[in-house]
Simulated scan of single mutants.
Amino acid sequence: MDTRYILETRRHARGAVRPVAIAVIVVIALLAVGAWFLIIKPHQELMMADSGGHPSTPVSTATRAAPPPANVAAMDVNQLLAEARTAMNEQRYLAPTGNNAFEFYLRAMEKDPGNKVASDALRETFPFAATSAEQAINSRDFNEAQRQIDLLAKADPTNFTLTILRSKLDAQRKTLDKQQQLAADQQKAQELATQKAAADKVAQVKLVEQQQAQLAEQERQAKARAAQQASQPAAPPPVASDDTASADSGSAGGQSSTAVLLKASPARYPTAAMRARQEGWVLVSFTVDADGRTADIKVLESQPRRVFDRSAEDAVGRYRFTPAMKNGVAVSTTKQQRIEFKL
């Protein structure tokens, strides 16, 4: 047989097999799709309807707040299963307490431990109920979340989902504790800051009052000094010394007289003594020159010592006299003066 003919025949045969294989694959795919829509999906929808629908469907507040049926303890297994199916349809998997699917199924299992309907429903509904417990954890309703986890544990104590839920609940509790502690610390810090601000304000007010009192005292002292200087009496006439008196009394010739004070200058009260409220006196000796000016001023005695000496010397240095006369000629004379310092 010709080799070229054989090769040509095989090539045509392979070309015919490929369309057949594709057609078979398409038919299988169509059958799978049809089985999904006609068999599998209706069965799943039926199971979902029996177990209460998809967990993502929101549950109304009115449904969760529905009161439990009367005399639940007296219900038989069929009645409990009927109540459980109603709760499943309303998505009351774990709440409210005493009126949820899990509690009804568990009561049915207590009365009929081998009840397959209740055991299958608990197993198939467990993921949806776990989602409900997780929502309670996320909403930080920790007591309710703990109750639901305990209820799940009664249905399937070895389910690993319980470990995850307990970990989440513990983590949320710790997070809440930290937040509450942080809020408490912030509140305490704010209270301390408020107290400090109040204390600082009181201290500032006291400081201002002290400063005002000091200024008032300084002003009062300044007025007192001014009044004291204005009212300082003129120095009394100097007392002539014995030598001068002898000279005056012994003069027999021309006109003779003692030195006469023309201008007295009040002594300035020392600031330190005024602040200390000190008083005293100074006995000063000085010479009246022939031109009526004072010279050779000396402190003979003072009380207290050295407090008023300089003020007394300065005051005497500003005195002006009519010089003493002897036989019609101006002469110098020595005098003493006691100067009082009183407040």
Rank of each mutant, 00 (worst) to 15 (best):
R10N: 06
S257H: 04
L300A: 07
A35Q: 14
I339H: 00
T86Q: 05
F126S: 09
D185W: 04
N99M: 03
A240C: 00
A35S: 15
D177G: 14
A155R: 03
G52S: 08
T334P: 00
D243I: 04
V26M: 09
A13D: 05
P323D: 09
S241H: 01
Q148F: 03
A183W: 02
L106R: 13
G292A: 03
K174I: 14
A235L: 10
A230C: 04
A84P: 03
L106I: 10
I22Y: 10
A65Q: 11
A252C: 05
K111S: 15
N71P: 02
Q44Y: 15
G292V: 05
R318F: 06
A276C: 10
Y93E: 05
I137P: 00
R268I: 02
Q179N: 10
I137Q: 01
H54Q: 14
T158Q: 15
D289S: 13
A101C: 07
R18F: 09
E103L: 05
Q180T: 13
Y269G: 00
A108D: 10
D141A: 12
A259G: 11
Q204F: 05
A189K: 00
A153R: 08
A82E: 06
K188H: 09
R18Q: 08
F126G: 12
S285L: 02
M47R: 04
T97Q: 14
R85D: 06
Y93C: 02
E191H: 06
L215Y: 05
P238H: 03
A198Q: 15
M109F: 07
G253Y: 03
R338E: 12
A199Y: 08
Y319W: 07
V331T: 06
R225N: 03
L165G: 03
Q211E: 14
P58E: 14
N143A: 15
Y93P: 01
T271Y: 08
P233F: 03
W281E: 11
V72K: 01
L262I: 05
L207E: 13
V299F: 06
A189N: 02
T125F: 10
E124K: 04
A145C: 06
D243C: 00
Q148H: 09
Q232F: 12
V288A: 02
T334D: 06
I39R: 15
V284E: 00
R277M: 13
V329H: 02
